[in-house]
Each structure stands twice: as structure tokens, then as C-alpha cells.
Amino acid sequence: MKFCAETFFTPAGINDYLAYLASSYETARIADWRPSGCVCVRHDIDFDVDCALWLAKLEARHGVNASYYFLITSDLYNVLSRANSRAIQEISALGFEVGLHFDPTVYEGADAKAMHDAYLREKETLERVTGQPVVSASLHNPSTLDELPSLAGVTNCYDPPVFKPESFLSDSCKDFRGKDPFTFLEGSAKESIQLLLHPLHYYSSAGGGYSLSLSRCFAERINRIDRAFRGNRTYQAEIGDQSLLEVLCATQRGQVRS
């Protein structure tokens, strides 16, 4: 298959890629890494849990094994909310590994012991959500860190032998850095490859960039707020039969015209 960035970062594009991946290679979770013969598929969840569940269901249909890493300290989603906890539990129930996406910058100025204690607290929080032990972890934005913290007791996605620059492929910023995501996998026969894909990149039905993917996420969150407020009679009287999303879009169009 031939790589085309314009069509790759779409639901159809990732569906075709997963079909190719499942039919051509043996996929594995990070926890099941071995020196050669497999593609370890990894997903860092930086923004939204809904798109992670969407991709997990797609991967499950194709029989792709993968690991999903969630931020405990995210400003953008809460792993302990009922909806997100259930989504993460569903991902785990589908057979995927759920690991910790650890952001050391949240603990700026912490010494090694304080950083380790924070990591353990986050790990235990995620374990309470899934009811399963966390056996691997990935670091958030490691390229911005002066020093990578030690994550004892788990497989660290950025520690050798799991991580080697020459056998690592990432779609960060929707850019494979000149590598072809199809032909690059051919090297897995000699040395296992770690493949990092961010679900948000494939979440827009129209493709066309981050704005459309984010718009879908925002729309889902607005609809969730709408449902939560429907028991408020004052809100119900104001909104009526319209959805909150419809009201906000109409308001925005009015502001643009004025």
C-alpha cells in the first residue's frame, strides 16, 4: 500500500492501515514486547477518552493488539469521571493493555523521591479504575524533558530495549518524519518496532486537520453537558427542543454576521 498523508489521517485511512497491519504483521502490547517479530502498538491519550474507545473498538474488529496510556493529571479529561472510567474499563475488557501516561512537568521542582511517590500515586489511581495492575508506562512529551525520570516496577516505553530510535515510529504532529508507515514495518522481522499512534489524529470523518477532529470532540462534550442539564427546569425552558450545540452554533453564526 502507498502512504498518502491526506487520506491516512482519517477514519477510513486508519481502518485500512489497521487491516493491513493485522494481515501482514503480528501485533503486540508493550507489556508483551519481545526482541523481534512483532509490532508493538501504542496509543498516548493526550486529549480525549472517547476517541480512544472509538479506536479500540476498531482495532478489536481487526484483531490488533495494543496498549493505551492515560494521563491522570490531564487538564482536558478526568479518568475518574463515570463516563471516562467506564470507557477505560471497556478498553481493558476488549483485551487491550491500559497503562499510565506520566507527565513529570506537573511536579516541577520535585526531587527524585517526590517524583517517584507521585508516579506511584498515579499508577495506583489508574489501577483502581481498571481493577488491573499497571505494568507499563509512557512519558508525556519526553522531548521537552531535561532528564527522564525512572519509572520503577513497570516497562517504560522510552527505556531500552523497548525503545530504540531506529525501530520507533510515531505520528506525533501528524508527521512520520519522512518515514513511510507501511514500509517501515518491514523491519520488524529483525527487530520489533514500537508504533505510536494518537487516536485524535484519525477522529474526523472529513479529515482535513486538527480543527475538524477537535470539533467532533467538542461537540460530544457539549452534548454531554446538554444531557446533564436537562433536569434543570430553568435550563430546559431556555433551551426548549433545541440542543445546546444548536443554540451555540446559532449564537456563533449571529456573532459572525454582526
Rank of each mutant, 00 (worst) to 15 (best):
A12W: 02
E122G: 13
Y203W: 07
V64D: 11
F168V: 05
E122S: 07
L139H: 09
N223I: 00
R224C: 08
A112S: 15
R224G: 08
S258R: 14
E90A: 14
E90F: 11
S67V: 07
D117S: 11
A87F: 11
I14Q: 10
D50A: 15
D103H: 09
R61Y: 01
Y203P: 02
R34G: 06
G153C: 10
K57F: 00
L195E: 07
R177Y: 07
V154P: 03
Q255P: 00
E147V: 09
A5Y: 01
V79S: 02
A87Q: 14
S213Y: 05
P104Q: 02
Y77D: 05
S138N: 10
F8Q: 07
V129P: 06
C4I: 10
S143E: 15
V162E: 13
V64W: 04
M1V: 10
A19G: 10
R82W: 02
E6Q: 13
A87N: 12
R86D: 15
K179I: 00
L248W: 00
D146Q: 11
Y235G: 12
M1C: 04
Y158P: 04
S211A: 15
L21Q: 11
P199V: 00
L94Q: 09
F176D: 06
S74F: 01
R233S: 14
L100I: 09
P35K: 09
E127Q: 15
E90L: 13
E246P: 00
T125V: 10
R34C: 10
C4H: 15
K113W: 10
D117C: 04
I45K: 09
I30A: 15
P181D: 12
Y107M: 02
P199I: 00
L196C: 06
N156V: 05
Y202P: 06
A31I: 05
S215M: 03
S92W: 02
A56D: 06
H140I: 05
Y210L: 14
D44F: 09
A118D: 06
Y158K: 07
P133D: 08
P142H: 12
G178E: 04
W33Y: 15
N65E: 14
E186W: 02
C51M: 05
K174N: 07
T10H: 07
Q252T: 10
T144G: 05
A87R: 15
C157N: 11
D171L: 05
A110T: 03
F163K: 08
L196K: 02
L71C: 00
T27H: 00
Y68R: 06
E191T: 15
P35W: 11
C249N: 12
Y25F: 15
R227C: 04
E220T: 04
Y20V: 03
D241R: 13
A60E: 12
L100D: 11
T183I: 09
L55A: 14
P199E: 03
M115Y: 04
S243Q: 04
F9K: 02
I193L: 11
P149A: 10
